[in-house]
Amino acid sequence: MSLIEIRGLTHVYSRGTPFEKTAIDNINLTIEAGGAVALIGHTGSGKSTLISHLNALLKPDSGTVLLDGEDIFASKAAMRAARFRVGVVFQYPEYQLFEETVAADIAYGPKNLKLPQEEIGRRVREAAAFVGFPEDRFDRSPLELSGGQKRRVAIAGVLAMEPELLVLDEPTAGLDPAGREDLLEKLFAWKNASGGTILLVTHDMSIANRCDRLIVMEEGRIALDGTPEAVFAHSDKLLSIGLDLPAAARIAGLLREQGVAVPQGVYAIEQLAAAILALRGKGGAPC
């Protein structure tokens, strides 16, 4: 069975006012357990609205979300239960920190789960280890930390709830390239270690192509859905939505225009390097 099944989900903001806007329009989608999915789209394409339905923070105007086959909007208890199974890290999560110490802030979620004290302690240590936050700084105030460290603590606060599906809205926004790489690596390491599922919301194609499935949204609908190869093959469509291609795919396209026979479906740096090396080996043309 799929982990998440979204059926005919529609959400309209400010219904009945001049600001009325259909943010997502009849979305149908299933997400299987264990994958890494990237949700891509332009600002205002409905990505954030969609993910707010996955843990029942927003109620749909029509349609529903099934988690393991159960309707998460069935009752208040079901909505709350969904929040503990689907962890959502919103954009700039560092602004949600409030406790006096880092450890207490990470423990906020597990505490709401009413777990025993030892279990909370274990989860806090594990979550902090996953994001690479040193234990000797557990007693610091989260407000004294640097921006990147705050982000890690905030993400650890959601990881400590040990969600089955981890949804992250632009987790790397505002981080420097090194911090970005590091955070992504840690998130994927968490996925592999815990067997969880990751849904990354992003418009950074170099993040997207690390996932095994890409869902592209446009004006509240799903425009493209498939493996990175399949989605990046529709480069014209992506460009017309106003999205970019990964750098490697762009280079491959430019090479093809120049008459170099780079095969289709090249979108990662490693693939491009291999393709160019293969061409060199075959034709012996100097580069």
Partner: peptide, 27 residues
């Protein structure tokens, strides 16, 4: 936004006694 983020961490702003609810507002 902050409400969404704390609710996503299991904050319960709607039930409980008055002191409990007041305390739930701190986050």
């Amino acid at each position: 936004r902050i409400m969404s983020a704390q609710k996503a961490r299991g904050a319960d702003l709607e039930t409980g006694t008055l002191p409990e609810r007041a305390k739930a507002l701190l986050p």
